[in-house]
Nucleic acid binder design. Structure first.
Lengths: 229, 229
DNA sequence: ATCTCAACCGGACCGCGGTCCAGTTTTGTT
DNA sequence: AACAAAACTGGACCGCGGTCCGGTTGAGAT
C-alpha cells in the first residue's frame, strides 16, 4: 500500500542493503572520539575488531605485503566475503588500519597546540605541518605505501625521471642556490597526469586555470613573482 | 646497461637468460629515431609489432581498461607468455604504447625550438614546459592513467583530502590572492608518502634535508623567502 | 517466548596479472 | 648442409582481489 504508484521514481535500484562499508569519517571536531562504528550489529562489530587485530598481527609478523584479504580472513577465522563487506577492498582495510594514527594527527593540526594547531601565523603552521607529516610518513611508511597500489613504482618510472630531471636542470639555472632536486618534485606534483585528470574531469576545472596556476607557481618558486606583487 | 639498477636490482639473479624486456630507452639525442628495438630476433620483432598494434586497436575500440594482457595476446594471435616476455608487465605494455609521443615530447623540450627547447631563459622554459605537459596530459590521458595502477583513486582518498584542505586553508591566510586550491596540490606533492619513501629509502636522502626543502618551499610560495634572499 | 526481517556470514566462483617450462624456431658456426 | 646453442613461444598453472548468493543470526516488535 505504501508503494502504490510510488515505484516510478526509484531507478533500477537493486535491493542492495545499502553499502555498509564504514568510511573513515572525516573527523567530527568535538564529538566523542571513540564512537567509531556507526551502529554495527553485535557480531559484525566483533568480526570487525577481529579482522583489524588479525591484520595488525599479520603486518607486524610478516610485513604489509603479507596482508592478503584471504590471509586476514583466515587469521580472523572469518569468511572472505566478510572482509570485503566490512572494508570494501584492500585499500579500505589498510586505510582502516591507519585510521587511528590518522585521527590523532588530524586532531593535532586541527585543534592541538601551536605551532601545529591554531594560534600561530599560517606560514609557521605550514612549516610545522609539513615537518610533522614527513616524520609521520617515515614511521607508518610501510602501511601507507601498501595502502596505495603501485605507489612504490611511481617515482622509478623512466619517463617520469626524465621529465623531473629536466625541471631540475631548469631550476638549477633559475635558482642556483636552492635544493633543486627536491624542489623539482614539488613542481612535478602539479603536473601529475592523475591530478590533471582529477581536476579537469572530476572537478570541472578548466585547463586555462591549471596553466595559470602553473605559471604562478613557477613565478613564486623562481622568485620572479616577488617583483610583480 | 642503460637500465642497470632499474627493476629492484636483480637479487639472487637466477639463470634467467637476461630480462629481454625492452626498456623505453631514455632518449639518445642525435641517434636515429627509429632504431627502436635493440636487436630483436625476426619473429620476436614481428610479434612485438603485432602486440602493439593489437593493443592500440583495443584501446581505440573498447577503451584502455579493455587492454587486458590476455585480450591483447588473443587479439594478436600470440601466447600470453609472449606478451609478458616482451613488455614485462601491464604497465610496461601501456608505457610502450605511450612511448612514441613520449619521445616526441622529449625531443621537443630537449632540442626543439624555444621557448620549450634551449635558447630561452629558464623561467620561460619552465612555464612553457608545464603548459605543454598539461596539454599533453589532457590528450593521452586515458592511457597515461591506465599505465599507473590506482591512479584514478589517489586524489579521492578521504585522508588525503583532509590534509590537502588544511594546507589550502593555511594558504588562504598566508597568500589570499593566489589560487590556493591548486597551489595546495603542489605542496602536497612534496609530502606524498610514496615520494618520501623513494627519497629516503632508495636515494638515501636524510630526513633533515627533506624538512629543509619543505620549509624553503613554503617560504618561496608564501613570498617570505623573498625578503631573506 | 515467538515471530519477522534486515543485516550478516561464508565460501564457491570468476577474471586477471604474472610465472614456468617443455617444445619449437632462428641464427651463427663448421 | 648439418648442427648446437640461444632465443623465443604458447598455454597450463598459481594466487589474489573482488563478486555473488543461499543459508544463518541478531534485534526489535508483539
Amino acid at each position: 500500500m505504501l508503494y502504490a504508484g510510488f515505484m516510478s521514481a526509484a531507478p533500477p535500484s537493486v535491493p542492495t542493503p545499502q553499502e555498509p562499508v564504514d568510511q573513515p569519517e572525516l573527523l567530527q571536531l568535538g564529538t566523542a572520539l571513540e564512537a567509531d562504528e556507526p551502529c554495527l550489529r553485535a557480531d559484525a562489530a566483533r568480526n570487525r575488531a577481529r579482522l583489524l587485530e588479525a591484520a595488525g598481527r599479520l603486518v607486524a609478523e610478516r610485513g604489509a605485503e603479507a596482508v592478503t584479504m584471504e590471509a586476514v580472513a583466515a587469521e580472523a577465522c572469518v569468511g572472505k566475503g566478510t572482509v570485503f563487506r566490512r572494508f570494501g577492498d584492500r585499500t579500505g582495510l589498510l586505510t582502516a588500519l591507519l585510521d587511528h594514527s590518522e585521527k590523532k594527527f588530524q586532531a593535532a593540526f586541527l585543534g592541538g597546540p601551536p605551532p601545529l594547531g591554531p594560534g600561530a601565523p599560517p606560514e609557521e603552521r605550514l612549516r610545522a605541518f609539513g615537518c610533522a607529516m614527513l616524520r609521520r610518513s617515515t614511521d607508518e611508511l610501510e602501511l601507507q605505501l601498501a595502502a596505495e597500489p603501485g605507489a612504490s613504482r611511481r617515482y622509478v618510472a623512466p619517463a617520469r625521471r626524465v621529465l623531473r630531471h629536466h625541471i631540475e636542470m631548469l631550476l638549477r639555472q633559475a635558482v642556483p642556490d636552492a635544493d633543486c632536486e627536491l624542489l623539482s618534485h614539488a613542481l612535478m606534483g602539479q603536473l601529475d597526469p592523475a591530478l590533471v585528470h582529477h581536476l579537469t574531469r572530476q572537478c570541472g576545472i578548466p585547463l586555462s586555470r591549471l596553466e595559470a596556476a602553473w605559471t604562478d607557481l613557477v613565478d613564486r618558486v623562481t622568485g620572479e613573482g616577488a617583483a610583480r606583487r
